[in-house]
Amino acid sequence: MALRDTPCDIIDVEDSDDGRDAGVLRRFDSVGADVSVFSAVEEQVITLARHDTLASLEPPGTMERAVRLMFGLRARSRALADTRLEALRRAVVVARHRRHMPDPVARDLRERGFRDAQLRSIEARALAA
């Protein structure tokens, strides 16, 4: 296991059986309690979603569809293919812009397998943006 110190916590990168990083990051608080565990992909989603706007959660509006039709542009999907990662992205965007994570969003994340410690971490990281 490799440990790296950061100003506010310690991050532990789990190693796989062959000695390479398994891509799971663990965050510990100052007393060493496991605060949250995210995969490398989930970490990337959290980081990238901190820059998304609330408009990225809505389907394209009438004007956007009209401009795409007039200029022959293809519509691109804003949603992530994985529903768990999309729920995570949406939660980060909502928490960042509303300054808290609403109960329905937290409930959706719990249903998708996220724990309470992870929810607190997601909200804190979204607000730190």
Rank of each mutant, 00 (worst) to 15 (best):
R65G: 00
A22E: 06
E43F: 09
P59G: 08
D82E: 08
I46D: 00
E86W: 08
V31M: 02
S16A: 15
T83F: 07
D52I: 01
A75Y: 08
D15M: 09
V35A: 05
R27K: 07
V45E: 03
F38R: 01
L57A: 04
V24H: 11
R50H: 02
S30K: 12
D34Q: 15
R78K: 12
D82Q: 11
M63C: 03
R50K: 15
G23D: 00
R20H: 10
L57S: 01
A40H: 10
V67Y: 14
E43Q: 07
G19T: 04
A66E: 10
V13T: 13
C8R: 11
A22L: 15
A49V: 05
L57V: 05
E43M: 11
R68A: 12
T83C: 07
T62P: 08
A22I: 01
A22W: 06
D82V: 06
D21R: 09
S77Y: 07
S56W: 10
S16H: 13
V67F: 12
V35D: 01
E14F: 03
V37M: 13
A79I: 02
V31D: 09
G23M: 03
C8Q: 08
R84C: 08
R78M: 06
L57D: 03
V67M: 13
L80D: 05
D17M: 10
H51N: 15
D21T: 05
R78E: 08
A81T: 09
I11D: 02
C8S: 11
L73G: 15
D17V: 13
T62S: 13
R26Y: 11
G32I: 03
H51D: 13
T62A: 09
L69C: 04
A49T: 02
A75D: 15
L69Q: 15
G72H: 04
I11H: 10
V13Q: 06
F38A: 00
E86P: 04
F28R: 04
D12A: 11
A55T: 14
D21H: 11
G32V: 02
V45R: 01
G72C: 04
A79M: 05
L48V: 12
S39V: 08
I11N: 01
L25P: 00
F38Y: 09
M70H: 10
C8P: 00
P59E: 14
S16R: 13
V31G: 01
R74C: 01
E43A: 08
G61W: 01
D82G: 11
R20K: 14
V13A: 06
I10R: 15
D18N: 13
A81L: 08
R76F: 06
L80T: 06
R65M: 02
L80A: 08
L80Q: 05
L85S: 02
T53V: 07
D18Y: 09
D82H: 12
R27V: 12
M70R: 14
V37Y: 10
R27T: 08
T62E: 15
V24G: 00
A33T: 13
S16G: 15
L48Q: 10
G23W: 04
A66S: 08
H51Y: 14
L25R: 02
E64M: 05
R76S: 10
V35E: 10
D9P: 00
V13W: 13
S56Q: 11
S56T: 14
A75L: 04
I10A: 11
P60Q: 00
T47P: 00
L57H: 01
G23T: 05
H51R: 14
L54P: 06
R74W: 00
